[in-house]
Amino acid sequence: MSALSVQLRSRTSVEPAADAVIVRITDPGLFHVPLLVLSGTRGFNLPPAADLARLRRFLTYGGLLLIDDGEARPGGAFDRSARALVQALLPALAPTAIKSNHVLYKSFYLIDGPAGRSLAAPALEAVEQDGRLLVLLSPNDLGSALAGADERSLRLAVNVVLYALCLDYKEDQVHVPFILRRRRWRTEP
């Protein structure tokens, strides 16, 4: 992930930490950074109920979990485990494919779809609540592609970070002049 930090610092005004911090769900530092990345290449067991509750709290109070499938294999062991985790965390919310006009694809770069080491799946999936992404499922091994400095993947990763930091900012930014005119906000001379 240090490659992403370097690119973020050089391409954007974001000041990321030099490297990612590895945390356990039980760590007090879990809530110190609201963007969490879960990556792997094999299946894993569901965490205990208390950990699930803590992670659920992380998500519902403002955190974002990016799950990157290092296998890049839909239906593979990691993918099944990840989906089981999402189901256990947010049973009422099923992941759905992100449409190409989602703000995630324009939070910094104007891009039109997923990226990664392979294109195993044609779309990112996400769990969304109240207009905010809680969980983002990347099926194409984004992490490996970042290490290889793949430009498309870097742009997608930059957009994910900018989305985590700015949410739907790019949804309303383009509307500034329109909103100002529509509201007829004017003051007396």
Binding site: V14, G62, C166, L167
Partner: peptide, 12 residues
């Protein structure tokens, strides 16, 4: 002046 967690929570 810069995207940050502080900005993100205030925006939310």
């Amino acid at each position: 002046g810069r995207p940050s967690w502080d900005e993100r929570f205030l925006r939310r």
